[in-house]
């Protein structure tokens, strides 16, 4: 999908949610997933997968009628299972509630109806099911971390600063819709930006860009979109 397609055809648009608003909604559920994932001690790749599953969901369904935090909770629960890092549903639910309400779970239990936890569990499993059907059970997510490190490591061990900066840029990029548009090219964009930022002359390594299997136009596009995140 191209960026224009995503921005113009998003189902949220029909419900009057403009592209800027949707960008912020995207940031907000990504921040939530990051927080939830860290508390559940999930690896960064699983957290990233959950974000991408959410992005995929919201290019198909509108923010107007699907609570993004419910979808995000279910997406992380699902991503953890899909990447063999399952977390007990009740732990996921408890942590998710505590983040959303900024309250301890025992305190929440005083405020809410008796069966609120069961109801919440039912909602999240419904959301999980909805993600699966909406994505047609396509849960595989290709991360650019591996191509990025494998290509950049060819520069030698002295370039750890460059590699780390590029990796951080990739993680930042998760907040955007880049993952819906490109596959490992995000790695190239991140490497390009990192090199530029550190005044590192990657162009002198002739085969570097070929290894990322990208074109100058894509490179330009990806790094432009990464820049917009800051």
């Amino acid at each position: 999908m191209s960026k224009d397609e995503i921005e113009l055809c998003s189902p949220s648009r029909r419900d009057g949610i403009d592209s800027l608003r949707e960008t912020h909604l995207r940031y907000s559920y990504c921040a939530f997933i990051q927080n939830l994932g860290l508390q559940l001690e999930l690896p960064q790749t699983t957290i990233g997968t959950a974000m991408v599953l959410c992005h995929r969901f919201f290019v198909r369904r509108s923010h107007a009628c699907h609570d993004r935090f419910l979808i995000a909770t279910a997406a992380l629960f699902l991503a953890a299972k899909s990447e063999e890092m399952p977390r007990p549903l009740n732990n996921v639910l408890r942590t998710s509630c505590e983040i959303l309400h900024k309250q301890d779970i025992t305190f929440l239990s005083y405020l809410l109806p008796v069966d609120w936890f069961e109801q919440y569990r039912e909602r999240v499993t419904e959301a999980e099911q909805m993600i699966l059907t909406t994505l047609n059970f396509e849960l595989n997510v290709e991360h650019p971390y591996d191509p990025l490190t494998s290509v950049l490591n060819k520069l030698g061990p002295s370039q750890t600063v460059l590699v780390n900066l590029a990796l951080n840029l990739v993680s930042e990029g998760l907040r955007s819709s880049l993952w819906l548009q490109f596959k490992p090219h995000i790695a190239a964009g991140a490497a390009y930006l990192a090199a530029k930022f550190l005044n590192f002359d990657l162009d002198s390594y002739h085969n570097m860009w070929r290894e990322f299997q990208t074109t100058p136009a894509i490179l330009q596009d990806v790094s432009q979109q990464l820049m917009e995140l800051f």
Partner: peptide, 20 residues
């Protein structure tokens, strides 16, 4: 239209996307 409230899921939305 406002964005979805807490706990909102539209389970009846016609499935033009995804599995049959």
């Amino acid at each position: 239209m406002a964005i979805a409230g807490a706990g909102q899921l539209n389970l009846h939305e016609s499935p033009c996307w995804g599995s049959r």
